[in-house]
Design a binder for these strands. Structure first.
Lengths: 344, 344
DNA sequence: TTTAGCACTCATTGAGTTGGAGTGCTAACA
DNA sequence: TGTTAGCACTCCAACTCAATGAGTGCTAAA
């Protein structure tokens, strides 16, 4: 990519900003008026023509103004953007809303709602991964004929339960034995470590023919398997996307909403953002998913104790106010991280 | 409403069926050919003209054919419809899919998916109300500083837990005392009865200054309050609705999808169907909700032990194949009922 | 009661027209 | 060499206009 003159950069910025604001292809005359430079439309045409050659802008048809391409947006976002600082009042609002002492899922829902409300686009938050969370305790309770209730206490905020189908009946005291055995062994360890060690221990105890331990371990294994509720996300404000001209073709919307329902693809995309520290942006086709061709995704990971637990973000048209959305997503990720941190 | 001649009825039926099939206003010529009656278009025009006077059909504009009105659909559905029996293979499929031994929520999700897949419209299933379900057991477990985990075993299939914030720490044995006290009192009783009795018992024990009982009751009260996860529903196949011409205005879709997200309205509507035994149908504006003006809703309640637990149904355009949807909804309700019944 | 005939209405389609916005190119200017 | 004015050109969007065709209502005859 050849170097871009100061002026060309400035004009690309002006053009992109104008287009984001107005949604209409912008022509040389408009730009001349708008940009504040003392240049005639003709001069501007020359510059813009260079930008076009570099693939940063294009015109939808011969006699229309120019529109940023994905590449143009990319350059704009990476090097030209002047990010606005966020109003304190908004941050306070967010902190308040995410301050309630509820479980992770509720927080995710609140956060996605906040994101969608403030940006008037769609907000998305993946549920926190719990691989690295510490297992606090396991409890087994007899339920009924050949059914045992297993309760998995992960931390103060999250408890999962699942119902095990067993081969025979177990008494409460027997189950108590199992759980205290397991707690001795595994309490305080990370879930994925527990998972790993379960496998090896199982093999070992089977060899040793220790019936009681084996049963306990088998149960634990089953619980972890069940509780392994594959990663998931919550979405809010999908309908906001219907307000944007450029997405308002029924077919575009259908593909988009099908993807939202299907979840697989969106999840895969969001997973890619876990790696990256800080705000990450996919513009248009960059995502690699066709249904997002006319959309951009702005994400940021959230974490607890330096462990990234998930990702949140905003989905909207490529023509979105990045300079506003970016700080919002960034701040929300921080606030959510704080909310998830054990406060004591 | 004046009596309708045999012939008029027949023609209304033919017209409605044709319109449902083709989606185009049907004219007298078409109807003459289609209906199998040996009548000229002119004659048919006379009859149709009567139907129009009665408000059963109308024409979108002067020189178009006729389309059934809501009233026309109503008459069609109530008295003219020939419901097709369902293929056994489909019923078997449904039974298989709903046979798995999972919890109520999963079943509801499967059912709504089935409904939407088979009808190519949107399937909806309310989560089962648990007011009349028997409380099997309560357990309290100490979690951490001033936090107690309460587990509510409702029946073999459903367990709820919630985390209580308490004023001081409780030991495991103390909590054990509470839960066994509560289980003695309430196990086996219906949830709403438990709720009712809790209130009065609380008042009584407070007067008696029985500290221990009071605490136990207060905890139970809190649990029930928390677990009171207001009624809810699951929806599948919303995007199918985008395939229908008549709903494909972005605005219509937006209102519809907003209603789906909002849930309140749809729930209220579905609640009305609990009363009615068997299949109930809302056609177009009959629902009273504007966003459903161009939709119909076909529902049937499902129940266990004669207790209606919820409603399921299909949402689609008014122009839907009622004769097919009705038996599908009916059968699904039966199969879901069976699946929820304790099998032992 | 049914039918044929006819005049009439109205949505839809496609072709032709116009106006405006914007471009690219060229030649002149600083 | 960079900047500007002028001009021909392109294309979209909006509009008009006429033709088409599906369907109706009415009337009078079978």
């Amino acid at each position: 990519m050849p170097e871009l003159s100061e002026r060309a950069q400035y004009l690309l910025k002006a053009l992109t900003e104008r287009y984001i604001r107005e949604g209409q292809p912008v022509g040389s005359r408009t730009l001349a008026r708008d940009a504040g430079l003392k240049l005639s439309p003709a001069t501007i045409r020359n510059v813009i023509s260079d930008l076009e050659e570099m693939g940063l802008v294009c015109s939808p048809h011969t006699s229309a103004g120019r529109v940023p391409t994905v590449l143009g947006y990319r350059l704009f976002v990476d090097t030209l953007l002047s990010v606005q600082p966020l109003e304190d009042s908004l941050v306070d609002d967010f902190k308040l809303s995410l301050g309630a002492d509820t479980d992770a899922k509720d927080l995710a829902e609140i956060a996605s709602k906040l994101l969608s409300d403030v940006t008037r686009m769609a907000g998305v938050v993946t549920l926190p991964r719990r691989d690295h969370a510490a297992l606090q305790r396991v409890e087994f309770l007899p339920l009924s004929e050949q059914k045992v209730l297993a309760v998995l206490v992960i931390d103060d905020q999250e408890v999962r339960n699942c119902i095990l189908q067993t081969e025979r009946n177990y008494s409460a005291s027997e189950l108590q034995q199992y759980s205290s055995f397991l707690n001795e062994q595994f309490a305080g360890r990370e879930l994925n470590e527990v998972r790993r060690r379960l496998v090896s221990e199982l093999r070992e105890t089977r060899e040793n023919l220790n019936r009681m331990m084996a049963t306990a371990l088998e149960m634990a294994d089953q619980v972890l398997g069940e509780a392994e509720q594959g990663s998931d996300y919550v979405l809010a404000g999908q309908t906001n996307l219907m307000e944007f001209e450029e997405l308002c073709k029924v077919n575009t919307l259908r593909h988009l909403f099908e993807a939202f329902n299907e979840k697989r693809h969106i999840l895969h995309l969001l997973d890619q953002c876990v790696e990256n520290e800080g705000v990450q942006i996919f513009i248009g086709e960059e995502s690699g998913y066709q249904m997002l061709d006319e959309c951009s995704l702005v994400t940021a990971p959230y974490s607890v104790d330096g462990q990234v637990l998930g990702v949140l973000g905003v989905i909207g048209p490529t023509r979105m106010a990045y300079e506003r959305v970016i700080p919002i997503v960034d701040a929300t990720a921080r606030i959510l991280s704080a909310a998830l941190n054990p406060k004591d």
